[in-house]
Design a protein around this nucleic acid. Sequence first.
DNA 1: TATTTGGTTCTCTTATTGCAGAACCAAAAA
DNA 2: TTTTTGGTTCTGCAATAAGAGAACCAAATA
Lengths: 172, 172
Amino acid sequence: MQNQKNYLPLHRYAKQNMDIIKLTDRQLALIEKLGLIFENGLQPAAARIAALLLVSDKLELTFDEIREQLNLSKSATSNALNLLLSMDRIEYITKPGDRKRYFKSNLSDWKENMKVKFLEFDKVHKTMREVLDQRPHSTKEFNRGLEDFINFMEFMNREIPALFKKWELSKK
Amino acid sequence: MQNQKNYLPLHRYAKQNMDIIKLTDRQLALIEKLGLIFENGLQPAAARIAALLLVSDKLELTFDEIREQLNLSKSATSNALNLLLSMDRIEYITKPGDRKRYFKSNLSDWKENMKVKFLEFDKVHKTMREVLDQRPHSTKEFNRGLEDFINFMEFMNREIPALFKKWELSKK
DNA sequence: TATTTGGTTCTCTTATTGCAGAACCAAAAA
DNA sequence: TTTTTGGTTCTGCAATAAGAGAACCAAATA
């Protein structure tokens, strides 16, 4: 159980992994690029942290390593990390004899998140159906168009879980 | 061609469709609900206009009708309408002898928009692939997880167009 | 016991968004 | 020619977001 906090005297381990992580230009560029993508749904600081944890050679970074790499203040780092933790986009491990937390990207949960996102349609088409239900019969053509659109969303909602399954099967 | 501006003296047509549109409580509630959904990607005023144009009995509303129904200022109405127009989420028609524009929801384009949105994945997985390409071999397990995720996104990207086709076929 | 570490929380600034209200404008009508 | 209509554009304000910096804190170390 790595996550158990079982501290040993710090001096026995200190700086063990503290080679200053140095990013190549290519990596920096990728962080910017990914960061922009992630800003769809995340604040900039959090987006760049998420990107950093994918791009960096070293996968498990401490608070201060993240802070330094991205030139963030402590508060920004703290808030962004906690946000990402609460979204399950990252997680952390601890190491025996070391109080620091090592943050890493939570890849496995991403797929879950994606499923959830796909299925968010559900709310949309249900509300749209409500809209259709209260429309007057007189706007026939529009109603037909709307119904078509709703049916389409429902179709997607039915088929997408099947796609997930198909993917799982194709891997075996 | 309804869109041709062929003005006739206003008095011959004035107020023809100017029955004050009155929304039921149910409709107002639906506008709020849909409005919230649309706020994902739209400013509040624009979101509620988009909702109004789906919910209202009357489908083609003028600038002032929209403005009054939603209690917006002229500037907010103008800006929101132009935003929606530029996104192709609404369109307008004109009527002979009438300078006003009649705005309506552009349902057909919505499906297009949805396709585009689905295919936005493309950018994401391409960048992710770049990330994977520059990762050190040493983080084998992580790389495998990342690759799995990328493959999954590529799979989705391949399969979703097929789903669109399947839908089109199922309608015939 | 005093100090250091690994953060968290509070306060303040700055930048951005979203909108109201008024001024403005061109085309049409009077 | 003046007025009205159907908007657009400009100015300014209030609310919110994003993050810096400092104060703070509990657990671990010295």
